[in-house]
Design a protein around this nucleic acid. Structure first.
Lengths: 186, 186
DNA sequence: TAATTAACAGAACAATATGTTTGGTAACAA
DNA sequence: TTGTTACCAAACATATTGTTCTGTTAATTA
């Protein structure tokens, strides 16, 4: 009895995401989620303790995938192994976002996107930290954790800017912007 | 009858800020704010339409001050007029934050700080945009609004890192970090 | 196919939160 | 003093939350 569970879980996730596109997180009620997902009240609370819990689990599911994929990519290619590498981890991430198989883009552009940015940036921090530990020392006397924070933070800010502007640039273009931005610290 | 109004408004702001230090925004009820501020229920709703409205007004009051002060500074000194200027706008901002006359630091380090980051960054965007319009053209072929977004975004991320680490660096140290970070785009 | 089990639905529930209304009090200005 | 304005307390309808109960559906197992 796992297919049924997965199905309702997915229905709740879908309904929740769809609602987030329309109104802010705070003004979404459990009742609305239930109605949109067409599940019973009891069922909702059997799956999730609370609305905040639903939010957390949705984030973990979505960002877990994208970061996991990037982790693999980083392991084989390196963060920015050579400066002009056509497939840096960052480019890979951007392409992954553009493909939009998941609805991460929807969440990052909704009214309550700030909730998701924390998850996104924290995930990126882990990713970049892993890469730094096995990389060469930075060329400047900036604290390592400052650097990690700056890189992941800048990346998230760039993605936000990209989305807000209608995603008019290709991932490759953005990757070039980002390599310029990072050239003073890497 | 303005002193009385100001007093209750300040009491509500203070109570709200104090509560934000203890628990997340979503779990704070209007009743708790009322009790902490020691004002009547009717009074609260006479001042603010809703809890979200209170949040918005608090942000505008706090960030209005700090950015206004920075605007003046920027007008006389320029954003980073010469690279090694001891009193850049960013240094000024950091010093202002450290002085902690306002409780911006408290809000930026509380559980729901992501709510305030949007306001902070938006304010910074205006500030930096103003400076860019009257400044020399950027030395790289990056889109201007990308640059503005990157600078304000990086600054906010740096401040967050600073606070989370216990603010062990001086504003002058941070300003040096930031000038290194920006050296590739300015 | 029949029996068992686990997830589901629906409805009702107490408890809590919201935002409004009413009537009355205290401060302040003319 | 008189009028205005901000304030408070209490009660209010309404809405939301999270739980409990009883029964139903769907998948697994015999």
């Amino acid at each position: 009895m796992d297919r049924k569970q997965k199905k309702t879980r997915a229905a709740i996730f879908a309904a929740f995401s769809s609602l987030l596109a329309k109104k802010s997180y705070n003004r979404i009620t459990v009742q609305e989620i239930i109605d949109a997902a067409d599940v019973g009240r009891t069922t909702f609370y059997a799956h999730f303790e609370t609305k905040d819990d639903l939010l957390k689990e949705l984030c973990e599911e979505l960002f877990g995938h994208i970061i996991g994929s990037a982790m693999d990519c980083a392991h084989t290619h390196g963060l920015y192994s050579d400066a002009s590498s056509p497939d840096s981890v960052f480019c890979h991430l951007l392409q992954h976002l553009q493909k939009n198989g998941s609805n991460i883009l929807g969440l990052l552009s909704c009214e309550s996107n700030d909730i998701f940015l924390r998850y996104f940036k924290n995930s990126l921090n882990d990713l970049i930290q892993n890469q730094f530990l096995q990389g060469k020392p930075p060329k400047l006397d900036l604290p390592p954790d400052f650097l990690i924070n700056h890189i992941s933070g800048s990346f998230v800010e760039m993605v936000l800017w990209w989305i807000k502007g209608g995603m008019k640039q290709t991932p490759e273009e953005l990757d070039r912007y980002f390599s310029v931005v990072l050239s003073s610290v890497l």
